[in-house]
Computed example of a mutant assay.
Amino acid sequence: MATASVEDSVEVPLAWSQPHGACWGQPARGLGTVARTGKAKKGQRKPSRGARGRNCHIRNLMVKVRDLGLGFNSDEIVLFKYCSGSCHRARSNYDLTLGSLLRQQLIVPGPQERVLSHPCCRPTRYEAVSFMDVQNTWQTVEKLSAAECSCIG
């Protein structure tokens, strides 16, 4: 499995998984190396170490282009930004009601369905990533990396 070393890093997986109750596209813990982000804006306190992992925010990963899974042949390393964290504080009355109905099994998802009773931490804006392939040609992939994250749903 590919990992990249970045200053002030924490361990998270490069492979995506969907543990019960998590949103699609959020990583489980423990496999790759990711840099912390989340610098406090002027006048704001930086969240505690434990709070950073729970709130929806952008994380950074230095990764080889060929490991992106898009079929590009390049040894360049690029910065991939993704959204991570929970959105339980953003729950609405809809989410609370849906959770209750699911627990009571009044709503039973089909075998290929997944019903989430909480908002998901997802990109709300994307940015392009450019790199050079092995033929010395510049490639640009639009909407590859997250530029902003928010609780959606």
Score class of each variant (00 low, 15 high):
residue 17 S to N: 09
residue 19 P to R: 10
residue 20 H to N: 10
residue 22 A to F: 03
residue 22 A to E: 03
residue 24 W to V: 15
residue 24 W to H: 15
residue 25 G to I: 04
residue 25 G to R: 12
residue 28 A to F: 10
residue 28 A to W: 09
residue 28 A to Y: 08
residue 29 R to I: 05
residue 31 L to K: 12
residue 32 G to I: 00
residue 33 T to A: 08
residue 33 T to R: 09
residue 34 V to G: 01
residue 35 A to I: 02
residue 36 R to H: 05
residue 38 G to A: 10
residue 41 K to M: 14
residue 43 G to I: 00
residue 44 Q to Y: 10
residue 44 Q to I: 07
residue 45 R to Y: 12
residue 48 S to E: 14
residue 49 R to A: 15
residue 51 A to E: 14
residue 51 A to H: 14
residue 53 G to S: 10
residue 54 R to I: 07
residue 54 R to Y: 05
residue 56 C to T: 02
residue 57 H to K: 11
residue 57 H to Q: 15
residue 58 I to V: 09
residue 58 I to L: 10
residue 59 R to V: 08
residue 60 N to E: 12
residue 60 N to M: 13
residue 63 V to F: 05
residue 63 V to T: 11
residue 64 K to W: 03
residue 69 G to D: 08
residue 70 L to A: 07
residue 70 L to C: 08
residue 70 L to S: 09
residue 71 G to F: 01
residue 74 S to D: 09
residue 75 D to C: 08
residue 76 E to F: 05
residue 78 V to N: 06
residue 81 K to S: 15
residue 82 Y to D: 08
residue 83 C to T: 05
residue 84 S to E: 06
residue 84 S to M: 07
residue 84 S to Y: 06
residue 85 G to L: 02
residue 85 G to C: 05
residue 85 G to D: 05
residue 87 C to F: 01
residue 87 C to N: 02
residue 87 C to G: 01
residue 87 C to E: 00
residue 88 H to N: 13
residue 88 H to Q: 13
residue 91 R to M: 12
residue 96 L to A: 08
residue 96 L to R: 15
residue 97 T to I: 12
residue 101 L to K: 04
residue 102 L to A: 02
residue 103 R to P: 00
residue 103 R to K: 08
residue 104 Q to T: 05
residue 106 L to S: 13
residue 106 L to N: 12
residue 107 I to E: 04
residue 107 I to P: 00
residue 108 V to Y: 03
residue 109 P to E: 07
residue 111 P to F: 09
residue 113 E to S: 04
residue 113 E to A: 01
residue 115 V to E: 06
